[in-house]
Simulated assay, not measured.
Amino acid sequence: MEHTPTGAGREIQLAPNELIVSKTDPSGHITYANRVFMRIAGYPEHLLLGKPHNIIRHPDMPRGAYRLMWQTLQSGREFFAVVKNATIDGNYYWVLANVTPDYDLRGKLQGYYSVRRPPSRNAIAAIEPIYAEMRKIEAAHGKAEAPDASRDWLLAQLQEKGCSYQDFILNLNADVLRAKGVNG
């Protein structure tokens, strides 16, 4: 996949009260997308349903961030992240994503439920250089080792600060979440 330089395309911003909602099956294929998702990403429903959720993955996003997400979800915990997504026409949009495993009454994983809202501008400014460094680390490693290498670097940076990735993301977005009455 060819990498689009940061800043290429135009940023699409969610309105302050907009939420993007989607559901996937256990393998990450989209089973539901709300109208806001379709409008912001530019995809009609028939081009989203049944497709892998990474159809909207922006090349500026390090693979290590997704490795951390999947490890967190597979351990049964919810995951928060600031994510840069791509639109169908080459633009991009930032979200504060909350992804949660969805279990049936017997405890069997049914898939994942994701709610995305606008992140704080400070969160975007803080995460962009971190993701840039993670992409450099990934470029210096083989394809198989790259996600783990960048994830490990990120976790080591946060350990030095004495916080988890989730705490880091929630703290960066505390003002946005407080304004919406959301507690992380």
Rank of each mutant, 00 (worst) to 15 (best):
E2Q: 11
E2P: 01
H3K: 07
T4W: 04
R10T: 13
E11A: 01
I12V: 15
I12C: 11
Q13E: 13
P16M: 09
L19E: 09
S22G: 09
K23G: 06
T24A: 01
P26F: 08
S27W: 07
H29A: 04
H29C: 14
I30S: 05
N34I: 11
I40V: 15
A41R: 03
P44D: 15
L49Y: 01
L49E: 13
G50R: 04
N54P: 12
N54D: 12
I55Q: 10
I56Y: 05
R63C: 02
Y66K: 04
T72A: 04
L73R: 00
L73W: 01
G76S: 00
F79N: 03
K84V: 03
K84P: 01
N85M: 10
N91F: 09
Y93G: 11
W94A: 02
T100E: 04
D102V: 05
L105C: 03
R106M: 08
R106T: 11
K108N: 12
Q110R: 13
Q110L: 15
Y112N: 06
R117F: 06
S120P: 10
N122D: 15
A123D: 09
A126L: 01
Y131P: 09
K136Y: 03
A139M: 05
A144P: 06
A144T: 12
A144E: 15
E145F: 03
A146F: 01
D148L: 07
A149K: 00
S150T: 02
R151F: 04
D152T: 12
W153S: 00
W153N: 02
L154V: 00
L155E: 12
Q159K: 13
K161H: 04
K161E: 11
S164P: 03
D167S: 14
N173S: 10
N173I: 09
A174E: 14
D175K: 14
G181M: 10
V182P: 05
